[in-house]
Amino acid sequence: MENRPSNVPVTINVNGNALSAEVEPRTLLALFLRDDLHLTGTHIGCDTSNCGACTVLLDGDAVKSCTVLAVQADGRDITTIEGVAGDDGSFSAVQEGFRQEHGLQCGYCTPGMIMAATALLADNPNPSEHDIRHNLEGNLCRCTGYQMIVNSVRWAAENPDGVSVSVGGQGAHS
């Protein structure tokens, strides 16, 4: 037990910043992001790769960061929920869609949902309801029953530029 392999240096490009660290080889990317980089927007909801709460983008593809070792991300690009909004704080179309269509309740699965939906729309800018449901199959939500998540992704597809909203600003929905 005491003879663990020594730590390994990694350099990972996280949300546009190249970050270097020494990690235990067994460290999951999800825990590296949360515990070492303090990027706690990436959530962990299971230990069997079923829930998708930890979904991030790895070189643009949606991956469950609990199934990737930090060392496997060495030299690659990671985007987390913290890297989705614009530099001015404006929400991405997917973020705004979730807000407009009530695509979240407790918000715990939401970062993973937003990352998975972001990857989906990059591949398929105009997904049908069927496409959305099946592409989000690996992301569990216990609060919404999914219909409003589907609506949120459709909103983002129909409003690819999102809308400009100051953080904290509110408005009547209709």
Binding site: L39, T40, G41, T42, T80, I81, E82, V84, A85, F91, Q95, F98, R99, Q100, H102, L104, G107, T110, P111, I114, V167, G168, Q170, G171, A172, H173
Partner: peptide
């Protein structure tokens, strides 16, 4: 629209 959402959709 919800006051809760801006924090939750940005991590």
């Amino acid at each position: 629209l919800r006051k809760e959402d801006p924090n939750l959709i940005t991590g």
